[in-house]
Amino acid sequence: MTGQGEGAARRLTIDILRYNPQDPESRPHMETFELDEAPSMTLFVALNDIRDRQDPSLQFDFVCRAGICGSCAMLIDGRPGLACRTLTSSLGERITLAPLPFFELIGDLSVNTGKWMRAMSERLEAWVHSDADVDLTRLEARMEPELAEQIYELERCIECGCCLAACGTARMREDFVGAVGLNKIARLRLDPRDQREDADYYELIGDDDGVFGCMSLLGCQDVCPKELGLQTQIAYMRRKMLRAALFPG
């Protein structure tokens, strides 16, 4: 089997940016840990090993450890990515880990993406708006199979926050909704069950904190772990929002 057994017997050096804002004594600093690499070792395995055997106070977030829940995004050698599905064998002997920028730091590698995502969802009213009274005993409304697939393609976002960590606009505008927010609106706009129109979406994202803030640097798309076509969606939404602004009604 490929992928297993390769790269064993290396001694890894992992530099981690440590800081606990809860502790008044704590100052941000790099701390270095060493451990033996094991076959098929991921950063999930490595970080747990460090916490279990070297420093029980190390903070980080993992939930699914399978690349699907979006909890464990961090800067891996400076690049945003999901730690749980990053094999140490894909990295050098010296690895640098830092918390995702842009989000509120909880401690060490743990950031509060959940709080930000909830606030973004509230601000963008990011749910299907429908006043249809659905009779649950009746056949469901039909949908073209291709349309369902297209919606799913956009729905695959796992709200990990990598796009914002890689975003130039987010560095300058703390209220920027990011690719995650714009993609969500694009997904809802595609969905016939959401009864809102472009004029409604324009109210939500038709400004510099929304679709007109994007500078098209493509960082979001470069780092998206789900390989979503974010730039296409943002460009498309920008055209639609411009049209909504120029030709209302």
Binding site: E140, E144, A148, D191
Partner: peptide, 19 residues
Amino acid sequence: APKAIRELAAWGVPWSRVA
């Protein structure tokens, strides 16, 4: 169960469809 799935369909789950 059929009611639950139809409720979720109304809430936006893009269930795969019969072609």
